[in-house]
């Protein structure tokens, strides 16, 4: 497939309180961004099990974003974001060993007012993934 036909799919796990609200705000502000993202709402970034991310890549995601409230203090549940931060710092290294380019995964902190940051992150991600081309995963998902 040529680069033009490639319509990447990007799965986003967004916490209810900051990032999901920022995505809403981007909507109410009528900002425009590529239609490649599919947002899954969780209560906190701390809820996002790396399994979900692997599952997404395994099933055809070309990029995955996990996003929540700014550390250290913005998390609605005190420190869920810190737990996510620790977890995904480790996880990034694992991705490489699975043959997935690190750039296909992003951990982002986007507060409820940062609609423009959300748009920027989406634009960058779509751009990056388009450059990398589709991910043909040879993943062994450890169930």
């Amino acid at each position: 497939m040529s680069n033009e036909d490639f319509k990447p799919k990007i799965v986003v796990f967004a916490c209810n309180w900051c990032t999901y609200a920022a995505v809403d705000l981007a909507g109410t502000s009528r900002m425009q961004y590529p239609a490649n993202v599919r947002v899954i709402r969780v209560m906190c970034s701390g809820r996002v099990d790396p399994q979900f991310v692997l599952e997404a890549f395994h099933n055809g995601a070309d990029g995955v974003i996990v996003a929540g409230c700014h550390p250290p203090t913005d998390c609605h549940y005190i420190s869920g974001n810190i737990k996510a931060l620790r977890r995904y710092t480790l996880f990034k290294r694992l991705l490489k060993s699975l043959g997935i380019e690190e750039e296909r995964f992003r951990l982002e902190w986007i507060s409820a007012s940062e609609a423009s940051k959300w748009v920027k992150v989406v634009n960058e991600m779509v751009e990056t993934v388009k450059k990398l081309g589709p991910l043909k995963p040879k993943l062994e998902v450890v169930e």
């Binding site: 701390g46 809820r47 549940y77 869920g80 737990k83």
Partner: peptide
């Protein structure tokens, strides 16, 4: 429990 789900992920 406030329902963040961090334990579930861990």
């Amino acid at each position: 429990c406030m329902g963040c789900g961090t334990c579930t992920a861990a």
